[in-house]
């Protein structure tokens, strides 16, 4: 029963959270903390912290964590399934429509505008990540002095090595793993 409720509640969250990531946080908080008291506010903030540190989208992490707390492993599976079910149905419907009618003029026009936009957003995400990796902050420090202060040479070394490896078309997953190992090795020195 509780698993059904978890599935249903997270399906609703999955359906209405547009804009992803942080945009969906208040919605999840409202349902999980205030309506159902599945988690305390401080546990919810913990999820937020964990999500910053670990792989995986914050929505999925919150669903899993809340489900686990409420009903163990079956709960976490039910909540996660609920969260992705609306996406699955909607995406398949839109994809079907898109592959059938995607080559008509109007849609091609819109896509001509969206393709460079996606490239721009990938660039912006990349630069934010450079700031996060090298200076441990969401944005670049405002002054040269602040930059020098916050600069992390070990991270810069890992980034440079990983970039060299990526230019040589080395397997993406090997690069990620090697970066993690390097992070531990350099940090322990």
């Amino acid at each position: 029963m509780i698993c059904l409720l978890l599935f249903w509640e997270f399906a609703k969250i999955g359906l209405v959270c547009v804009g992803g990531g942080y945009a969906s946080m208040p919605l999840i908080e409202d349902a999980v903390v205030h309506t159902y008291h599945w988690l305390t506010l401080s546990e919810f903030i913990d999820i937020f912290t964990i999500s910053q540190m670990t792989p995986g989208p914050i929505g999925i992490n919150a669903a899993t964590f809340a489900g686990m707390k409420v009903a163990g492993l079956p709960g976490s599976i039910a909540a996660t399934l609920g969260f992705v079910t609306p996406s699955f149905i909607l995406c398949l419907t839109v994809a079907r429509f898109f592959f059938r009618y995607g080559n008509i003029g109007a849609i091609q026009g819109v896509l001509n505008g969206l393709r460079p936009a996606v490239v721009a957003l990938i660039c912006a995400a990349g630069l934010s990540f450079v700031a996060l990796s090298l200076f441990d902050s969401e944005t670049f420090p405002a002054s040269c002095a602040a930059m020098r202060e916050a600069f992390d040479p070990k991270s810069a070394l890992i980034l440079a090595l990983a970039l060299t490896a990526a230019r040589r078309k080395i397997n993406v997953i090997h690069i990620l793993l090697a970066s993690g190992v390097l992070g531990v090795a350099l940090g322990m020195m």
């Binding site: 792989p55 450079v130 996060l132 990796s133 980034l159 440079a160 990983a162 690069i175 970066s179 940090g187």
Partner: peptide
């Protein structure tokens, strides 16, 4: 942290 740097490079 190391994997974050790797993802940044990629």
């Amino acid at each position: 942290k190391g994997m974050q740097c790797g993802a940044t490079a990629l």
